[in-house]
Simulated assay, not measured.
Amino acid sequence: MEVLSEHFEQKNISVKENISSHVKANGNFGLTEVLINNLILNAIRHTSRGGSIYIKLKDSLFEVSNSGTKELNKDLLFKRFSKLSTDNSGSGLGLAIISEICRFHQWTVHYRFENNLHIFSIKL
Rank of each mutant, 00 (worst) to 15 (best):
M1R: 02
E2R: 09
V3N: 12
E6P: 05
E6H: 09
H7T: 00
K11H: 09
K16W: 02
E17V: 05
N18S: 15
S20D: 13
K24Y: 14
A25C: 13
N26A: 11
N26T: 09
G27H: 07
N28F: 09
F29H: 11
L31M: 15
E33G: 12
L39A: 02
L39H: 01
I40R: 02
L41Y: 08
I44E: 00
I44R: 00
H46C: 08
T47A: 04
S48R: 09
G51I: 06
Y54P: 00
I55W: 07
I55Y: 06
K56C: 08
K58T: 11
S60C: 06
L61C: 07
E63M: 12
V64M: 08
N66M: 06
G68P: 02
E71K: 14
L72P: 01
K74P: 05
D75S: 13
L77W: 10
F78K: 05
F81I: 01
K83C: 07
K83I: 07
D87A: 05
G92Y: 08
L93C: 04
L93I: 03
L95D: 05
L95N: 03
E100N: 13
E100I: 01
I101V: 12
C102K: 04
Q106D: 15
V109L: 11
H110Y: 11
Y111H: 11
E114W: 05
H118Y: 13
S121D: 09
I122V: 15
K123D: 11
L124G: 03
